[in-house]
Design a protein around this nucleic acid. Structure first.
Lengths: 194, 194
DNA sequence: GGGGTTAGTAAGCGCTTGCTTAGTCTCTCC
DNA sequence: GGAGAGACTAAGCAAGCGCTTACTAACCCC
């Protein structure tokens, strides 16, 4: 991935999160990246390919962070706290990509949508398996693992919707707060650390 | 509001939630409502006015339901449960309008955005005041009321993002489940009913 | 029964859109 | 030193866009 292609992706991320995929023109993306309108097509076959590149890389980055967070924990409580903290903070820090990923999903081609859905299932699986482990260990008290997973993910993902830089809480504080709230939600018996 | 105008709003709700505001053409809305392309402009001055009508009415309906739910409860726990149940169920039942309201907000004119923001503050206020009351009564244990309000609302609002008819749980079940999870989140000391 | 309002249409205007084409410039490799 | 490849642009095409115009048909009230 060359330098200009990355610049185009940054420009597209700004524009898409600002006005949405469809309201963004290829001319706008090009000029934000300092290129002529035709310059986009040297690096991407279409506007949708640009959206897909953003969406795929965004999901991969989020997944990799979650896997790393989960793997360093020594207990389910610690693992869940790390996951919620990481995922919430990521959605605050990368709220622009987060919005694109969530709100513009429907503008991907069916083939690209499937690729993204596979990544989403991986992310979902990371959260769910920590819950399963915690329930099996008697550390969590959860009636419906699927419903609880969804509620926890909602808390994290929705951060991208309302977060704006300069808000009262920093991304770190949001992460810490959501981790604490999430542990309560699953009825964690022990604190995550200590 | 005449019959044809309501049909146009239904058509626009379908189209906007399907493809997004900008990707929807006025010709599409018109033909879904059984009108010629120009027929839209007899009832609405612009495509954006149609979006605003949908957005305003959606917010008002949600607010009225929440106020009604909160007012019938005799304790903060019961009130919070009713609010979470109602709000979650509404976002499942009206997931199309819910998505439009959340995702297409940025396509409103600045004036219309302000009207909608006022409605959102009212909705936020309903939830927050139940939390405040519950904390003051010693029934809830909440560190940061604003952060907790946001997390609870995320749980409810995000339902519109992932809900599809025919999913495992019905809107009623989603409402009941989210109410239960929400009570845990605020550390409710007593059950909501009984 | 005729003036005025309301709901609707056929046709199309002016503009913007995503993307293509044909060509220039620069760098590399032998 | 020239052939070839890659990055980029100026110009523009075909299609589609939101919305307007000029008009007709139906209805209401006095």
């Amino acid at each position: 991935m060359g330098d200009t292609a990355l610049r185009l992706m940054e420009a597209a991320a700004d524009a898409f999160s600002d006005k949405g995929f469809h309201a963004t023109t290829t001319r706008d993306i090009a000029s934000r990246a300092g290129l002529s309108p035709a310059g986009v097509y040297v690096h991407f076959a279409s506007k949708e390919e640009l959206l897909f590149a953003l969406s795929e890389r965004g999901h991969e980055a989020a997944r990799d962070m979650l896997v790393a967070a989960a793997s360093t924990a020594v207990s389910p409580s610690e693992g869940l706290a790390a996951i919620l903290e990481t995922f919430s903070r990521w959605h605050a820090e990368h709220y622009r990509v987060g919005r694109i990923v969530q709100y513009e999903f429907g503008h991907l081609t069916p083939e690209h949508r499937e690729v993204v859905l596979r990544l989403r299932k991986e992310i979902d699986g990371v959260v769910r398996s920590v819950l399963d482990t915690g329930v099996a260990a008697g550390e969590f008290e959860v009636d419906d693992v699927q419903a609880t997973t969804l509620a926890l993910m909602s808390m994290c993902v929705d951060v991208a919707r309302w977060y704006t830089p300069g808000i009262r809480r920093t991304p770190e504080e949001i992460g810490a707060s959501n981790a604490r709230l999430g542990l309560r939600l699953v009825g964690a018996r022990r604190p995550a650390r200590g």
